[in-house]
Design a protein around this nucleic acid. Structure first.
Lengths: 107, 107
DNA sequence: TTGATATTCAACCAAATGGTTGACGTTTCT
DNA sequence: AGAAACGTCAACCATTTGGTTGAATATCAA
């Protein structure tokens, strides 16, 4: 079973995908335009966008022959909460956090 | 070239490794005790601990025949900084965090 | 010294990942 | 209608990942 959190972190582990997210921070983009700065095929970028979409980090909407990519920060928020909780352990409710982790484990 | 950020996110992408980090929140632990709750071999856990160590998320110190594992939350700082670029989580919002936890636990 | 405990190493395996190329279906433009 | 642009699909390939087992190493205890 792969959770949302698994997919989010796995998606963020690739520098190409992080770069794509950074580009989408500025504006929505078509797949071809996302691919333009990268030294790899369009198909490879298409796969990366698929990973980001599966992780919920972006959404894609087709209008005409152009597929627009849009940042979806909600998935990032969940991962960010997880990380910052570890980084600021003294500032949070550890019992509640551990309950959350146990819940995640049980699935 | 794999960056520190790549390794941090990749390490966090595995639920076993996140569970290990959660266990280490409570206290430092020996490798054998880390492995105890998991339905996999000690060697597998040893590898996971190697990944976490390479990512800087934990440190390991051998005393006698026991290797102690210790959480190193500072390694998450770089990843948190990256996330701040998205402007969604510039400072941890404890109220939002509590709400998030409540949702997770109810869900 | 002998034996148990703690941990890693090495070899292996299946599955996932990140990339390629070429063919393919849509949609738009002349 | 024909050609170009947009994007995905399918097949393939090399590498990495997450697990196994069995042997090896190091330390402690009797």
């Amino acid at each position: 079973m792969t959770t949302q959190l698994d997919q989010t972190f796995a998606a963020l582990a690739d520098p190409t995908r992080r770069a794509i997210l950074a580009m989408l921070l500025e504006d929505d983009m078509a797949v071809t335009d996302v691919a333009e700065p990268f030294a790899m095929s369009l198909a490879a970028i298409s796969k990366h966008l698929g990973v980001l979409t599966a992780a919920g980090l972006i959404s894609q909407e087709k209008r005409g022959r152009v597929k627009w990519c849009k940042l979806e920060p909600d998935a990032l928020r969940e991962a960010s909460v997880w990380m910052q909780a570890f980084g600021q352990m003294d500032a949070i409710d550890l019992d509640a956090f551990e309950n959350f982790l146990a819940q995640e484990l049980d699935g």
